[in-house]
Nucleic acid binder design. Structure first.
Length: 584
RNA sequence: GCGCCCGUAGCUCAGUAGGAUAGAGCACAGGAUUCCUAAUCCUGGGGUCGCAGGUUCGAAUCCUGCCGGGCGCACCA
């Protein structure tokens, strides 16, 4: 189903038969041989670099080798012509039916067109969001959520067995702060005037409900008790209540996870001790003293011996502490335990989606993964840069409810989850992104969400109108499979078909690179080809999708239109966006 | 000081297992609507791909050095 793969295989088999005949030396390295679509139609449909790549090893020159291969290929039925050009490119022009023959395949496959077996069914773990359970999600979290979610879907489409995971950071000091903040709200719920929320506690109103819920459950039970008594209770309750909040926010975005892992329970079950003693036995931890950081020396720096992991053995810059001054585990230590836990659960392939502010942490985590998996595991970290929330070009005003940040919920309520998801995927994850609340709801081509959806809606509209024009034809996909598509040879039609042909390649490349944003770019391009052809129907009636009185022609065009709609829908599905049937 | 990322059209950015004349949108200028949604499309100008070397048939892409910008750099998460 991947046309480039098909042609590439043809090429390889011709090379092999040349080798078998003794016309070419054995043992050539074919790994750099590629086939790609040409940019310039004068170069045919497809071009290969094979002759230039192999010429040296084959002890010949590119043009000569190219001609040899070109002659072989030209004899095959799928090629109309094959030429050697420029420094040795093999330019291939396929017979017209080769391209249009794709359409029935797409119609039959539906949105599974583009699926591939790149992942070979291997498991992969994608961890994303992992926001601290201390409050509602803000817009920055949303980016990681969408990118992680889309990446997971993309990898599944590419043949991986994907597990979506959320790591709950519920073990650090910040959840104690949460507990104290909840305690204050609890007292407030019981009628006390708590005044201003003191510095260092979470001021957000979202904790009021937690306080009320606690008061309803336990009454005045905790009013005159000491902190060490109530803290664990409040902590647990508040974490649960914050996780409910976060799960609701995620649901509003259409993001879900298969597994929620709790740092607290992992540490509680002793994984940190386990992993450290394992590393100890391999001489990878030691008591040592770190140099103060160069350049900017913290005021409260004190030299002290710490339990350190030899991350420098695994390409890190300095060894990293596993225990804090107070004897507790560092976050890093827990993270090592967590990643080993993932590895033990069968995930040699791991992807973490983090905020860009954790950039400095990537190397040490990768070095730890190398150590604990003895180099049989792989961790890729996708960093998500900032989201600049704008309103008509100007920085958006701050949220009233949450204080200093705009909550995800407010944005979703304002512009809808589809727009949020699409926009989050219009940039590579590691560059910052302008998110304009005004623009994403605009119905114009400036708004890629609209632009792509509009193409899909137009196609649905064509189908509706065609059903009225030809009430006796069946226009469902399986009927369209039988349409005569051979004369869809207008450059505009062929442009769309070739674009559809490259979809499996786009999926494969995006999955390999772990870059779901490529899907969004592809869809914009495909929509553009569609709109362009559509508009040519303004000037030339013969190019319209519906040709009154000409059922065969109309069916052929509808087969093309539906194929475009299917690929748009399948790309949107990767992004987690619902295609619309009409614009309102 | 060290590390990572970035530098492509006036602006925002695509484009990395090296491919032919470097793309798109915005902005700017002009044009298309008795027509399936003009909510769209078409045409045009606009570039030393930060700079300098190197690798090679070929470099925005790989390597080295430099310039410019961003982020991070005991213990916090």
């Amino acid at each position: 189903m991947n046309y480039f793969q098909t042609i590439s295989n043809t090429l390889r088999s011709e090379i092999e038969s040349l080798i078998a005949e003794g016309s070419l030396a054995e043992g050539l390295d074919l790994s750099r041989v590629g086939v790609e679509q040409t940019k310039d139609p004068a170069h045919g449909d497809l071009a290969s670099n094979v002759a230039m790549v192999l010429a040296k090893a084959a002890k010949t020159n590119p043009r000569e080798l190219g001609q040899l291969l070109a002659d072989r290929l030209a004899a095959r039925q799928e090629f109309e012509s094959v030429e050697v050009a420029g420094p040795g490119f093999i330019n291939m022009r396929l017979v017209p039916g080769f391209w249009t023959g794709l359409l029935p395949d797409v119609l039959r496959a539906g949105t599974s067109y583009g699926d591939c077996d790149l992942g070979k069914g291997e498991t992969i773990n994608v961890e994303y969001v992992s926001a601290n359970p201390t409050g509602p999600m803000h817009i920055g979290h949303a980016r990681g959520a969408v990118i992680g979610d889309a990446l997971a879907t993309l990898l599944a489409k590419a043949g991986h067995k994907v597990t979506r995971e959320y790591y709950i950071n519920d073990a650090g000091a910040q959840v104690d702060v949460l507990a104290r903040s909840a305690y204050l709200r609890y007292r407030e719920a019981l009628g006390e005037d708590i005044g201003e929320i003191p510095d260092g506690l979470y001021p957000g109103n979202y904790l009021k409900k937690t306080g009320v819920d606690l008061a309803n459950r336990d009454g005045k039970k905790w009013l005159d008790t000491s902190e060490e008594d109530w803290l664990p209770v409040f902590r647990e309750f508040a974490i649960d209540s914050m996780m409910d909040l976060i799960r609701d926010d995620l649901a509003a975005l259409g993001v879900s996870h298969d597994v929620f892992s709790s740092e607290r329970s992992l540490v509680g079950s002793g994984v940190n001790d386990e992993v450290v003693s394992e590393l100890e036995s391999r001489d990878l931890v030691y008591m040592g003293t770190l140099e103060p950081p160069k350049g900017k020396r913290p005021d409260d720096w004190e030299e002290r011996p710490q339990l350190l992991f030899r991350s420098t053995n695994f390409d890190d810059d300095v060894d990293r502490p596993l225990k804090k001054g107070d004897g507790d585990w560092t976050y890093f230590a827990s993270d090592i335990g967590y990643h080993r836990d993932k590895f033990r659960r069968g995930f040699a392939n791991m992807i973490d989606v983090w905020g860009a502010d954790h950039k400095g942490y990537v190397k040490r985590m990768q070095s730890a993964v190398k150590a604990i998996t003895e180099d049989s595991g792989e961790l890729d970290v996708r960093l998500c840069n900032l989201v600049n929330l704008l309103e008509d070009g100007k920085p958006a005003k701050m949220s009233k409810r949450a204080g200093s940040f705009v909550t995800l919920r407010e944005v979703v309520d304002e512009v809808g989850k589809e727009a949020v998801r699409f926009m989050m995927l219009t940039r590579n994850s590691d560059v910052s992104l302008d998110f304009d609340l005004k623009k994403v709801t605009e119905q114009s081509k400036d708004n890629p969400v609209f632009y792509v959806q509009y193409a899909h809606a137009r196609i649905c509209s064509v189908l509706r109108n065609a059903a009225e024009e030809f009430p006796n034809l069946s226009l469902d996909d399986s009927s369209l499979t039988g349409a005569d598509v051979a004369d869809l040879q207008d450059p505009g039609e062929l442009a769309m078909i070739k674009e559809l042909a490259s979809w499996p390649q786009v999926v494969e490349n995006a999955a390999t690179a772990h870059e779901p944003h490529r899907i969004a770019f592809y869809l914009s391009d495909l929509a553009s080809s569609f709109h362009a052809f559509w508009n040519r129907g303004n000037a030339e009636e013969a190019l319209r999708f519906i040709v009154p009185g000409d059922a065969p022609k109309t069916l052929g065009r509808l087969a093309l239109a539906r194929s475009v709609a299917i690929v748009i829908a399948s790309g949107l599905a990767v992004m987690g966006v619902e295609p619309v049937e009409e614009m309102r």
